[in-house]
Design a protein around this nucleic acid. Structure first.
Length: 558
DNA sequence: CTTGGCGTCGTAC
DNA sequence: TGTACGACG
């Protein structure tokens, strides 16, 4: 649920950069003959030609939609090239897309605080860069402005949204422009430059939005695609939001947005303006209420986090219908695949970014064939994470068995049978900077994985050869640079380090014990009573009912 | 196997 | 802290 944050008083310059049909671009770079061709990426699935997870713009022209199956896409667009997501260990493997995303991030991080929002989206705080630029070069003196900047869409600039280059040039260089507009203009120049740099270094195009906060920047980046940028001026905010369907706003595409529509009759963001902050708080709680009130006005204090790397790693797979896993042995087989992928990624993160993960979590979905409503909740379980594929597997299997016992309850006790797992995933979280000295551990595990991966005798003794290879670092600051390392992996290395932050973030002792831990049982709270699932959880519908009087009396006011 | 599957991130208790 | 679940793409 969204949380209200006070708006920062100063006017920031925030950009949202969104890669255009990213997976398709990655495949087109890999296979250049696909460039310019109608292309879509499908997830491995022999059923009806697989599900589309990315559609190129040539194919979109023919009406191909993300919601289609491969077969449908072929019908609408017979010439379409359907590229399969790589498969490794019997499952879809997104590694190449993640690595491509890292390439992009490392370029975008050059000009300001950068937040990796997803595999193909990035937020940038360009406030400092824009202010510096404005101080050094008054815009009205600009002689040549890059074509990419002149192609910007400036919201509210022209009546028909038909901003030609000369109009944009005029807007960019207006002497008497609002100071905030001038900063936006600087932001647009910087972003255009960054987008060109991304194109030069990666061959990928992207679109961008430039605004005073994340919410508006995100909205803008999607308005003109592909390979274009959109600027949200202060003056345009009201007119932009007023007619906008509520579902178009980030965070309002789900149940909260639906509740707004069905319960309050709010169809556009403008409709929300009718409700007082107090009323929205009464209905949705203090945080969400304030957040909604601000959102309707284009206000968002959300900061751009300086974070270039993911906060967790996961590997999972679904087993729909008849493919459901019906024995512990089958589950173990797939857990092995998932744990090996996860372990490989953890190892790479350790070597490349000097980070260690602390928590291992197992998620699953399952049905009980006795229960008529087949899909009951399968509990997720976590434990401390121990490095090495074999240990991750061992712990995952234990987590699964603990969860399975809980899931089945007293229901008979067949070891196998009577149940089926339809989804299985393992993930690693609580990732922090590794202590210096972990490099030796890195090498230790590297050797282990390479040369005797199957041997799971965890002799905790390894030579603690003191190496001062790398100071620990955090990624909390702005600039970073990238180096290619080894196996096609992209490293993102921060320029600045903050030992203070690291030292408070983790204790050497804790990390060492995590890495070398020899206990073979994950720490489970097995005996703990299962809590009542419905406690403290009220749907929007329930909340609405609880406050029905307030709502209706409010509605009468209007 | 209803817009899938496979991730990620976030909040609440 | 672990766990559940929503949102997004």
């Amino acid at each position: 649920m969204p949380v209200a944050r006070p708006e920062t008083s100063d006017s920031r310059i925030i950009a949202h950069v969104d890669m255009d049909c990213f997976y398709v671009q990655v495949e087109q770079r890999k296979q250049p003959h696909l460039k310019g061709q109608p292309t879509a990426v499908v997830q491995y699935n022999s059923w009806k030609g697989g599900g589309l997870i990315a559609v190129g713009y040539e194919a979109r022209k023919d009406g191909v939609k993300r919601s289609m199956r491969g077969d449908e896409a072929k019908k609408v667009c017979p010439q379409i090239h359907l590229v399969q997501v790589p498969v490794a260990r019997g499952k879809a493997d997104l590694t190449i897309y993640r690595n491509a995303g890292s390439e992009v991030v490392s370029i975008l991080a050059r000009k300001g605080r950068c937040e990796r929002a997803s595999i193909d989206e990035v937020y940038l705080d360009l406030t400092d860069a824009a202010e510096t630029m404005l101080k050094e070069t008054p815009l009205e003196t600009l002689e040549s402005i890059d074509e990419e900047v002149l192609k910007s869409h400036v919201l509210g600039l022209s009546l028909n949204g038909n901003d030609d280059r000369e109009t944009v040039r005029e807007w960019l260089t207006r002497r008497d422009a609002d100071h905030r507009d001038k900063l936006l203009a600087c932001g647009a120049i910087i972003v255009a430059e960054l987008r060109l740099q991304v194109l030069r270094e990666t061959e990928f195009t992207c679109s961008a939005g430039v605004a005073h906060n994340k919410m508006l920047a995100k909205l803008a980046s999607g308005m003109n695609k592909p390979a274009q940028q959109t600027i949200v001026t202060l003056a345009s905010v009201k007119g932009l939001l007023e007619p906008l369907p509520i579902k178009k706003m980030k965070q309002l595409g789900g149940k909260l947005g639906s509740s707004l529509q069905t319960d309050l009759g709010v169809n556009t963001v403008g409709d929300l303006l009718q409700f007082s902050e107090q009323k929205l708080q009464d209905i949705y709680g203090a945080n969400t209420g304030t957040w909604l009130w601000n959102t309707a006005r284009g206000i968002s204090g959300d900061e751009v986090e300086g974070r270039l790397l993911p906060k967790s790693h996961g590997s999972g797979k679904t087993f729909p219908g008849v493919q459901a896993l019906k024995s512990v042995a089958a589950v173990e087989k797939w857990l092995k695949e998932l744990c090996e992928e996860l372990s490989e990624r953890l190892q790479l993160d350790l070597e490349t970014n000097k980070r260690v993960a602390h928590t291992l979590t197992l998620h699953a979905n399952a049905y009980k064939s006795t229960d008529t409503d087949s899909l009951k909740k399968f509990p997720s379980k976590s434990c401390p994470l121990r490095y090495g594929a074999g240990k991750v597997l061992e712990d995952s299997v234990n987590l699964f068995q603990a969860a399975l016992r809980e899931f089945l309850g007293s229901y008979t006790n067949p070891v196998d049978g009577g149940w089926g797992v339809t989804n299985l995933s393992v993930s690693a979280s609580k990732i922090v900077a590794a202590p210096s000295g972990t490099c030796s551990i890195t090498r230790y595990f590297h050797g282990q994985d390479r040369f005797h991966a199957s041997s799971e005798q965890s002799d905790k003794k390894f030579a603690p050869e003191s190496d001062n290879l790398s100071p620990s670092r955090t990624e909390s600051h702005s600039a970073s640079h990238q180096t290619d390392c080894g196996e096609g992996q992209t490293q993102i290395t921060p320029d600045t380090s903050s030992l203070d932050q690291y030292e408070t973030a983790c204790k050497d002792e804790a990390i060492e014990s995590c890495l070398t831990s020899t206990h073979h049982e994950p720490q489970l709270r097995l005996s703990e009573k299962e809590r009542n699932n419905n406690d403290g959880k009220r749907s929007y519908e329930q909340k609405r009912k609880a406050t029905q009087e307030k709502v209706s009396s409010f509605c009468w006011d209007f």
